[in-house]
Design a protein around this nucleic acid. Structure first.
Length: 270
DNA sequence: ATCTTAGCGTT
DNA sequence: AACGCTAAGAT
């Protein structure tokens, strides 16, 4: 499909340098080194590769179903706000997520994610030895900056040391001992796996998650917030990202074993 | 109606 | 490891 190629080209050539900010939205373009920890921490279980042109109508504004017992601890704190967030539009930041197996890296710039993939996954040390045919495989995802800044502004300054720079927390999604899932009418998100653990107890972090257009705040938890894609209505088969779709027949050798043998994809689970 | 895809079931 | 087969979707 032509639009997919266009998308791919767009992704690969886009060189957004907008940093992920966690300071007042009044200065959204000033580079912020301290933002790094956050940049590298944002993770999602899924992100769109279609430049965010998702669409859903009112009938899809479903609300997360009753949490299962084991998750009640976290999810009972959900609070729903306006179904249609008002100021959300301008505050979306495009982030770039690595799609390599077992890698949930999310960086704020395409150049950053390319460098990550080049060095970590392709084992290339510099751009000089690029053969011009690198396969990056990353996708864009949007992050709601309003929620992030709002959440951070709620940090209680009780612990200056930790409040200053939320170190390297939380740990990579893939390293978490167990993922918690939030059940939303059949849809599941791995994002909430960041909840509860590793959050400095002295801090009051909040999490805002956009669930099908609704912003949800999770009290007492860590903070990442994210967006829509992962909790949107079930992706149609056409949008489902499977090895075949991501890599194409030409690069069948890059498919996960399951896909190669026509089994349920292990890399891009639903 | 026909084509494509995901992935189950069997070998 | 291979792949026939078919339901679910896409066109």
């Amino acid at each position: 499909h032509a639009d997919k190629e266009v998308m791919a080209a767009t992704v690969l050539t886009s060189l957004s340098t907008s940093p992920l900010v966690h300071y007042p939205s009044s200065a959204p373009t000033v580079p912020e080194p301290a933002g790094r920890a956050w940049k590298e921490v944002l993770s999602t279980s899924y992100s769109s590769s279609t430049s965010g042109n998702w669409s859903w109508d009112a009938s899809d504004h479903s609300v997360p179903s009753t949490p299962s017992p084991e998750d009640a601890g976290e999810s009972q704190h959900f609070m729903f706000e306006d179904p249609i967030p008002r100021k959300r539009k301008n505050s979306m930041k495009v982030m770039f997520k690595c799609l390599w197996k077992n890698c949930e890296k999310v960086l704020s710039t395409s150049s950053g994610i390319q460098r990550h993939i080049r060095t970590i996954h392709l084992g290339r040390s510099s751009e000089s030895d690029s053969d011009g045919e690198e396969d990056f495989y990353y996708s864009e995802l949007e992050v709601n900056m309003d929620s992030l800044t709002e959440g951070l502004s709620n940090l209680t300054p009780t612990s200056p040391t930790t409040a200053g720079s939320p170190p390297s927390f939380p740990p990579p999604l893939t390293d978490l001992p167990h993922s918690k899932h939030i059940n939303t009418n059949g849809l599941q998100s791995h994002a909430p796996s960041l909840l509860s653990h590793s959050a400095p107890s002295t801090l009051s972090y909040y999490v805002y998650m956009c669930v099908v257009g609704t912003c949800v705040r999770l009290d007492g938890c860590v903070h990442v917030l994210m967006l829509s894609h992962l909790l949107l209505p079930r992706k149609s088969r056409g949008e489902a990202k499977k090895c075949r779709k991501v890599y194409g027949m030409e690069k069948r050798d890059m498919w996960c074993t399951a896909c190669r043998w026509k089994k349920a994809c292990q890399r891009f689970t639903d």
